[in-house]
Structures are given as C-alpha cells and as structure tokens.
C-alpha cells in the first residue's frame, strides 16, 4: 500500500498527488512513468512521473479525471492509501548535450513536460516553454514553468488567458523570430503532438514526443501499447515512451487510444453514481 502524502486540485478536472514510494523516488527521471491500481480489484493505469523528491521519498503524479479509475483516485484523500504503485518504467527523456530546446505542453501533458523543462533548465539549457490550455480555468503549473524557462508562452483556445491560439502558432512565431532549437519536445494530446511534428518537419527540427497509449503491465508483457514508428512496431512501455515524432504514426495511435472510450465514460458515470449514493 502506498500513502498519499499530499493532494491538491490544480483545476476542476486535474489533481496532483504526492505518493510515498521511496524506491521509485530514488530512481525516477523525467519522461518515465508509473503504473498504479487504486484498490484491490482496480485496473492498472499508467501515469507519467510529474516530479519526485529523492530525499522525502515521494513521487508526484498529476492526472486528469477521464474514466472510472481516475474518478476513483480523485476520491482518495491525503493520508489514505492506494493499492499498487510500480516503476519507474520506460526510458528517461534524453536531455544530455542540449543547449536550446522548445518544450511544448498541452493540457494535462504539461504535467509531464514540466519535469523535462526543469531538468533541462537545471543542466543550463535555454528552455522556451509553450503551454496550451482550452481556457483560463484549466491553466496548471504556471509558476513552475516560469521558474524553469527562459521564455514562457501561455496559449488558450478561447483567449481567456495568455495569447489566444494554438501552441503551434506560438512555436511557429518563435522559430520565425530566428530561434534555433537543438530539439523540440512535445507532450500532450496525440492530435497536438501530430501537428507540432508537422510544423517542425517543415523546419527540419528534431522533435521528441511522449506517447501514452493504453497499457496493462508496463514492462513489455502485453503489447497493448504498440505503435508504429518508422514503419516498425514498437512498445511504448519499454522502447519509449519517448519517440522521434517525425516517425510516429499518429493517426494509428489516435485510433488505438479510442478503443475503450465508451467503456471508460460508462465506468466513470458508475463511480460518480456510487459516490452520490454514499452521500
């Protein structure tokens, strides 16, 4: 059992938790993920590590409430426990030798983009962060990104905060302004990563994306997380989750990600009803 040491609502649908997991905290690096189960009969879901504190022995997760399991997790409070928490899984994001990088985050993907930006910044790399949200109420980690970036662009779809527009608009403007990036790191919805890659391909800038497909074990056993990269089948859990964005078949990833969408919506409703009855 793994204790929830801190819980903080970042916006109405996104929650942060610090989980006591010293073995994982000791090893975790930006880009890696954990698999958790909320309770004894729960499903296994992957969540990317948002932060870690090696001394305190904690791992931070940030999740968006989308299905039954994340709904259930959101009902857990500080001091309570979650059943299983395993990791750190997958390969860490490569940050070695990078001098100037644009980090692009979309929605809850910013939770994963942030530790990458922070590590790059700590290594003395010039970090330009571009973070996008649907509206002002959904903005998360603004102060954190500010501290980890040389330049920060906040974009909202409706213009209620920052600049109105898409992350690709801001990225294009920065590139056009003459910024020469060693690499672009894009983390967010598959559709966002697809369009970031389309843009950077035009400029010939190497782009790394972090894929988060459906998985069960996270150690290479089920193959549920497979995707096509450069014409070859790869397992996101062991070969990734980071891949060369110019080689990823995003359309296939979009389709595969939608496989259980109906089931998830139904499950979430069931969990919500369950908690309503309790009240």
């Amino acid at each position: 059992m793994y204790k929830i040491l801190r819980k903080k609502e970042l916006n109405p649908t996104v929650t942060l938790m610090d989980i006591e997991a010293p073995l994982i905290a000791k090893k975790a690096e930006p880009g890696q993920f954990v698999i958790l189960r909320v309770n004894e009969n729960g499903e296994r879901i992957p969540l990317t590590v948002a932060d870690y504190d090696r001394e305190k022995g904690t791992v931070t997760i940030i999740f968006q409430i989308v299905g039954g399991t994340t709904e259930l997790l959101n009902h857990k409070n500080e001091g309570e426990y979650i059943q299983d928490f395993v990791g750190p899984l997958g390969k860490a994001t490569e940050t070695e030798g990078l001098k100037k990088v644009a980090v692009v985050g979309g929605g809850v993907g910013c939770a994963i983009a942030y530790p990458v930006a922070k590590k790059l910044h700590d290594n003395g790399c010039e970090v330009h962060s571009i973070v996008g949200f649907r509206n002002k109420d959904l903005v998360i980690l603004e102060d954190e990104f500010k501290a980890a970036s040389t330049e920060l662009k906040i974009m909202t779809d409706d213009g209620t905060y920052g600049t109105k527009g898409l992350v690709t608009d801001a990225l294009k403007a920065l590139i056009e302004a003459g910024n020469k990036y060693d690499e672009v790191i894009a983390i967010g919805p598959v559709i966002m990563m697809k369009f970031v890659c389309k843009l950077t391909k035009e400029y010939g800038i190497k782009t790394v994306v972090s894929m988060n497909p459906i998985m069960i074990d996270g150690t290479g056993m089920c193959g549920g997380c497979r995707l096509t990269v450069g014409g070859e089948t790869k397992f996101a859990c062991v070969d990734g989750p980071d891949f060369d964005g110019h080689l990823v078949d995003f359309d296939e990833a979009l389709e595969r990600g939608s496989m259980y969408r109906e089931f998830e919506a139904k499950k979430r409703e069931e969990v919500c009803n369950l908690f309503k009855e309790v009240k």
Binding site: C222, G223, T228, S258
Partner: peptide, 15 residues
C-alpha cells in the same frame, strides 16, 4: 496487426 481488436495472447489472457 495494429487494428483495434488484435491482441497478443498475453494481453488477452492478462485482461
């Protein structure tokens, strides 16, 4: 092989 509804036996049996 990456269509929705293709499982490895491992994934199918593990589920």
């Amino acid at each position: 092989e990456n269509l929705k509804g293709v499982y490895s036996a491992n994934e199918f049996l593990t589920r």
